[in-house]
Design a protein around this nucleic acid. Structure first.
Length: 889
RNA sequence: GGGCGGUUAGCUCAGCUGGGAGAGCAUCGGCCUUACAAGCCGAGGGUCACAGGUUCGAUCCCUGUACCGCCCACCA
C-alpha cells in the first residue's frame, strides 16, 4: 500500500461490491426509505409499476426503477414527504401458467387438483418465489418504502376491487352478456382487445364457389379461414351492388353442408374486394358478428374452447381448427368448389401471453362500459391536469381513447379476483355484493353460486394508485399522497394500464391519479433490436451490476434516457460510465489526502466568498450553474441533461481544471491559501456528491462517509439549492482567459513536440491592459500548469525570431524555439487557420452590412456579431504578423 | 390504410424557446507529471438525408421526397 492510499484510507480503484451491500443494508436498518407524513411539507409520491410476481429483472425494469429512484431520492433530499410505494402484480394468466407448468412436471394439472387446492398452490408458489424481483430491485439501489409493499391480491386491494366492481355494476357501467370476444384456445380464456397482438402473417386467400340455392348460378366468396364456413349463416352483399340484385330472395346452398343460408344486404361489405360477396360467420368473426346482429342471423359456433371442431362441424368434428382447414380445402377442391388460392398477407391475432393464434368467438362475459370513463381521462389530459411526457404521446392517447371499445374483464382462469357475483339457484337472481351474501335477497334461498370467472389482471392494477394507499378506507396516506406526483413507466403499457388508472382514479376519487406521466423508451441491444431470449441478445442487469457496479449501470441508463427515443445498450457503453464512477472515486481520494486531518470537531466557518482567489471563485460559480441545471433537468424529466451536466462538471471542470489548479496551494507553504483551498475543495466535493447522489447512490454515500466530521447519511442530507452569491461572471471570464492561454501554450508544446518535462519560456503580446493584469495575477498557475520557466507579457514589441506561436483574438502567444521551428509546417498551419477565419469574417461582416439584419435582429445578437467580427479581424491581423515574421527567417 | 418517431463526426447519440455545429467511444501524436494508464495533454474528422418554402438569418419552423423503425386498424 502506498503512502497515498494509507493517507486517504480509500483503495486505489473503486470496489463497488462490498460498498453497495453495506450501504443498502444500512439505509434499510435506519429506516431511511420509509415515507414521512409531516404537516406543512410538500408531498411527493410515486407508485411503482408493479412488476409481475413471476417476473425476473430485465434491463427495462432497471431503467424504469432507476428513473423512479432518482426522483424519489431527489425529493427526499429536498425534504418533501416522499413515498415510493412498491409492490407486485398477481399477473393472472402468467402466474397460472407458471404453476401449471410446475404441476405438469408432477403429472398433475389444475383440474386434477381442483380449484381450491390449485389456488392454495399458487399462493404457496408466491410465498416461495414471489419475492425474486423485489430482491433484485434492491440490488439496483431502489429506495422503495418496503414496509408498504403491496400485492394486487392482498386483502386491502381485494377489498378495493370489490368496492369498485360493485359500484360500477350498480351504476350500470359493468354488465354481463354474450358477445364476441378474443379467445385464447390454449389459456382457455377470453382476452381484452389489447391483449391480442396482431402479426402480419403470410397466408392464403381462398376463393370458394357458393352455388345459388335454386341452382341458377353461383357467387364466389373469398376467405382466409375456410374452416369457418362450417359456421356460415349468411352471405352478405352490398345493397347497391347490381351484380347481386334479387339474390336475397334466392339464398345460397352452403357447400360441404346440407344447409341453405340467406343472402343479406349490408353496407359493411366492400364492393371492390374480391367479388363483393362476403361469407358471414357470426360466431367466429368480429365483423360478421356485427352483421349478424343487424340481420338477426343465427350464431353457429363450430369450435370448442380448445379450438377443436365441435359437433356443429359435422364430419369435421374432433379436428383441430388448422387441421380442419386443410381438410376443408382438400374437400372443396375435390368437389369442385374451389375457384383459386391466392397468396395473401394478413394480420393474425395472437395471445400476448402464450402467442397462440386467438379465436374470435362468442361467449358469455363481463364487460365495462368504458366510454364514459374514457371521456373523463381525455379531458384530464386535454386540460392539463395530467401531463404526459413526452407530449408526442398525446395524440396517440386521444386516438386510442376515442376508439375505445367496451372492456372485457372476465377471464376463465382461476388465479385472480373472483368476480363478486352470485346467482340464486332457486330463483335465478343475480347478486353483486362486496360481502359474500348468505341468502338471496329476493327469495331468501341460501343456494347461491358464485361466478367462477376471475377479473382481468389489469382491473386490479387500474386501482393501484389509490388501492395501495388504503382506499376505500379514509387513510392518512390517501390524504397525503393522492393524487400521486408522477407515474414513470414504459410506453407499451400506456393503454393497458396508464389509461385505465386515469379512468378509475377520476371516476372513484374525482381526481387524477397522478399529475405527470413520464413514458420512457424501450431498451434495445446495440443494433437497435428488441432484446429477447430467443435472439440471445438479452443483457441481464444483475450481470451488468456484478461486472460494472450499480452506479455505473444507473448512470448509463440515465445518460441515455433522452425523451422519445429508444436506448441502445451495450457493455461498452456501461464501461465508459464505469470510468466516470472511478474518476469520481479518485478525485475523492485525492481530496481526502488533503482533507483527512482538516477538522475533527466543529466544521470550519463558511466560505468568505468576498475574497476568493480565482480558481475558487470560478469553481463555485460553475458549481452553482451545475446546481441550477440539475434542478431544471430533474423538474423537466430531462434525465440525460441531468447526467451530462454532472459528468461535464465533475470530470472536465472539477477534475481537469480545478484540482490541478489548486495543487500549488495544497502542496504549498502558504497556510492561509492552503486552508482556503481545503475549505473550498471540501465544499465543492460535498455539493458534487449531493448533486450526484440520486443517480449514483452508493459511491456518493461511501465517499460522503469518508469526509471529515460526523455525518448523517447522504440520503437525508439536503440537496443543494442555487446560491446567487456564488455566481461570478467576472471570475468565469478571467478563468476562461487563463484557460485559453494555458491551452495555447499546451498546443504549442504538443505541436512542437516539446517533451512534457522540458521547461520553456513563453511570451504573450497583448495590448489589453486589463486582460494583462488578469493573466499576470495567474502567472504562477499558468507556469505550473504548462511547465514554463518564465512567462512575460508585453503590450507590443519584438519577439525572438524562430518562435512557435498561438493566436488569440487580441493576443499572441510565443514560445521561442531557436532553430527548432519547421517554417513550412508553421506556415501551413497558419494558412489553414487563416482560411477558416476569412470565411467566418466574411460571413459575419456580410451580416453586419445587411440593413435588414441590423433592423430586425435583436440588439444583443447584433452586438455579439460585432464582437465576433472584431475577434476574427484581430486574429487575422495577428496571423498576418506572424506569417510575415516567419517569412523573414 | 392511418398515426408517431428517426436520418447530425467512423460508431452511439445530445443539441430545450431559430442567431458562430457538441459529447462519449473509436482514430492519430505525446506522456507511467506522487488522485486516477479505468488516466493526463494535444490533434484530426461533419454539404446536420434530399428538394423546396418562411425569415435579415434554418440542424432547429412549414411542405414534399427517400430510406429506417415503431404503434394502431374489422377489407373478408
Amino acid at each position: 500500500m502506498s503512502d497515498n492510499e494509507q493517507k486517504s484510507g480509500l483503495a486505489k480503484a473503486y470496489d463497488f461490491k462490498d460498498v453497495e451491500r453495506k450501504w443498502y443494508d444500512s439505509w434499510q436498518e435506519n429506516n431511511l426509505f420509509s415515507a414521512k407524513m409531516e404537516e406543512g411539507k410538500d408531498n411527493f409520491a410515486i407508485v411503482i409499476p408493479p412488476p409481475n410476481v413471476t417476473g425476473v429483472l430485465h434491463v427495462g425494469h432497471a431503467l424504469n426503477n432507476t428513473l423512479q429512484d432518482i426522483l424519489a431520492r431527489y425529493h427526499r433530499m429536498k425534504g418533501d414527504n416522499t413515498l415510493w410505494l412498491p409492490g407486485t402484480d398477481h399477473a393472472g394468466i402468467a402466474t397460472q401458467n407458471v404453476v401449471e407448468r410446475q404441476l405438469a412436471t408432477e403429472n398433475e394439472s389444475r383440474h386434477t387438483l381442483g380449484r381450491e387446492k390449485f389456488i392454495e398452490r399458487v399462493w404457496q408458489w408466491k410465498e416461495e418465489k414471489g419475492s425474486t424481483i423485489i430482491n433484485q430491485l434492491k440490488h439496483l439501489g431502489s429506495s422503495c418504502d418496503w414496509q408498504r409493499e403491496r400485492f394486487t391480491m392482498d386483502k386491502g386491494l381485494s377489498k378495493a376491487v370489490r368496492a369498485v366492481f360493485v359500484r360500477l355494476f350498480n351504476e350500470g357501467l359493468i354488465y354481463k352478456g354474450d358477445y364476441i370476444v378474443n379467445w385464447c384456445p390454449r389459456c382457455h380464456t377470453a382476452l381484452a382487445d389489447d391483449e391480442v397482438e396482431h402479426e402480419d402473417t403470410a397466408g392464403a386467400l381462398y376463393h370458394i364457389r357458393y352455388p345459388y340455392a335454386d341452382g341458377s348460378g353461383q357467387v364466389i366468396v373469398a376467405t382466409t379461414r375456410p374452416e369457418t364456413m362450417l359456421g356460415d349463416t349468411a352471405v352478405a352483399v352490398h345493397p347497391d351492388d347490381e351484380r347481386y340484385q334479387g339474390l336475397s330472395e334466392i339464398g345460397i346452398k352452403l357447400p360441404l353442408s346440407e344447409r341453405t343460408i340467406p343472402v343479406v344486404l349490408d353496407h359493411h361489405v366492400q364492393r371492390e374486394f374480391g367479388t363483393g360477396a362476403l361469407k358471414v360467420t357470426p360466431a367466429h368473426d368480429r365483423d360478421d358478428y356485427e352483421i349478424g346482429l343487424r340481420h338477426e342471423l343465427a350464431v353457429l359456433k363450430v369450435m370448442d374452447d380448445s379450438g377443436t371442431m365441435n359437433e356443429a362441424a359435422g364430419d369435421y368434428q374432433g379436428l383441430d381448427r388448422f387441421e380442419c382447414r386443410k381438410r376443408i380445402v382438400a374437400d372443396l377442391k375435390e368437389q369442385g368448389y374451389l375457384e383459386k388460392i391466392e397468396e395473401y398477407d394478413h394480420a393474425v391475432g395472437h395471445c400476448y401471453r402464450c402467442k397462440t393464434v386467438t379465436e374470435p368467438t362468442t361467449s358469455l362475459q363481463w364487460f365495462v362500459s368504458v366510454k364514459p370513463l374514457a371521456a373523463k381521462a381525455v379531458d384530464a389530459v386535454r386540460d392539463g391536469r395530467i401531463n404526459i411526457h413526452p407530449k408526442s404521446w398525446n395524440n396517440t392517447f386521444y386516438a386510442w381513447m376515442d376508439n375505445i371499445r367496451d372492456w372485457c374483464i372476465s377471464r376463465q382462469i382461476w388465479w385472480g379476483h373472483q368476480i363478486p357475483a352470485w346467482t340464486c339457484e332457486k330463483c335465478g337472481e343475480l347478486i353483486v355484493s362486496e360481502k359474500d351474501p348468505d341468502s338471496c335477497p329476493k327469495c331468501g334461498s341460501g343456494e347461491l353460486v358464485q361466478e367462477t370467472d376471475v377479473l382481468d389482471t389489469w382491473f386490479s392494477s387500474a386501482l393501484w394508485p389509490f388501492s395501495t394507499l388504503g382506499w376505500p378506507d379514509e387513510t392518512k396516506e390517501m390524504a397525503h399522497f393522492y393524487p400521486t406526483s408522477v407515474l414513470i413507466t414504459s410506453f407499451d403499457i400506456l393503454f393497458f394500464w396508464v389509461a385505465r388508472m386515469m379512468m378509475m382514479g377520476l371516476h372513484f376519487q374525482d381526481e387524477v391519479p397522478f399529475k405527470d406521466v413520464y413514458l420512457h423508451a424501450l431498451v434495445r441491444d446495440k443494433h437497435g433490436k428488441k432484446m429477447s431470449k430467443s435472439t440471445g441478445n438479452v443483457l441481464d442487469p444483475l450481470v451488468l451490476i456484478e461486472k460494472f457496479g450499480t452506479d455505473a449501470l444507473r448512470f448509463t441508463l440515465t445518460a441515455f434516457a433522452a425523451q422519445g427515443r429508444d436506448i441502445r445498450l451495450s457493455e461498452e457503453r456501461i464501461e465508459g460510465y464505469r470510468h466516470f464512477i472511478n474518476k469520481i472515486w479518485n478525485a475523492a481520494r485525492f481530496s481526502l489526502m488533503h482533507l483527512e486531518d482538516f477538522f475533527t470537531g466543529e466544521k470550519p466557518p463558511p466560505i468568505d466568498h468576498g475574497k476568493l482567489a480565482l480558481p475558487h471563485a470560478w469553481i463555485l460559480s460553475r458549481l452553482n450553474q451545475a446546481t441550477i441545471d440539475s434542478h431544471r433537468a430533474l423538474n423537466d424529466f430531462r434525465y440525460n441533461d441531468y447526467a451530462s451536466t454532472l459528468y461535464q462538471f465533475i470530470w472536465h471542470e472539477l477534475c481537469d481544471w480545478y484540482l490541478e489548479w489548486i495543487k500549488a496551494d495544497l502542496y504549498g507553504d502558504d497556510d492561509e491559501a492552503k486552508e482556503t483551498a481545503r475549505l473550498v475543495l471540501l465544499t465543492v466535493l460535498e455539493e458534487s456528491l449531493l448533486l450526484l447522489h440520486p443517480i449514483a447512490p452508493f459511491i456518493t454515500e461511501e465517499i460522503w462517509q469518508a469526509l471529515p466530521g460526523e455525518r448523517d447519511s447522504i440520503m437525508i442530507s439536503p440537496f443543494p439549492e442555487a446560491r446567487d452569491q456564488w455566481q461570478n461572471s467576472e471570475a468565469e471570464t478571467s478563468a476562461q482567459l487563463v484557460m485559453e492561454i494555458i491551452g495555447g501554450i499546451r498546443n504549442i508544446r504538443s505541436e512542437m513536440q516539446i517533451h512534457p518535462k522540458a521547461e520553456v519560456e513563453a511570451f504573450i503580446i497583448s495590448s489589453d491592459a486589463a486582460a494583462n493584469e488578469r493573466i499576470m495575477a495567474q502567472a504562477q498557475s499558468i507556469k505550473t500548469l504548462t511547465r514554463l520557466k518564465s512567462l512575460e507579457i508585453e503590450s507590443s514589441g519584438q519577439v525572438p525570431k524562430g518562435a512557435a506561436s498561438y493566436i488569440l483574438a487580441d493576443k499572441e502567444i510565443f514560445v521561442p524555439l531557436a532553430g527548432l521551428i519547421d517554417v513550412e509546417q508553421e506556415m501551413a498551419k497558419l494558412k489553414k487557420a487563416r482560411q477558416k477565419l476569412e470565411k467566418q469574417e466574411k460571413q459575419t461582416s456580410g451580416k453586419l452590412k445587411n440593413e435588414k439584419f441590423l433592423a430586425n435582429a435583436p440588439a444583443d445578437v447584433v452586438a455579439k456579431e460585432q464582437e465576433k467580427l472584431a475577434e476574427f479581424k484581430g486574429k487575422l491581423e495577428k496571423i498576418a504578423e506572424t506569417m510575415a515574421r516567419l517569412g523573414d527567417l
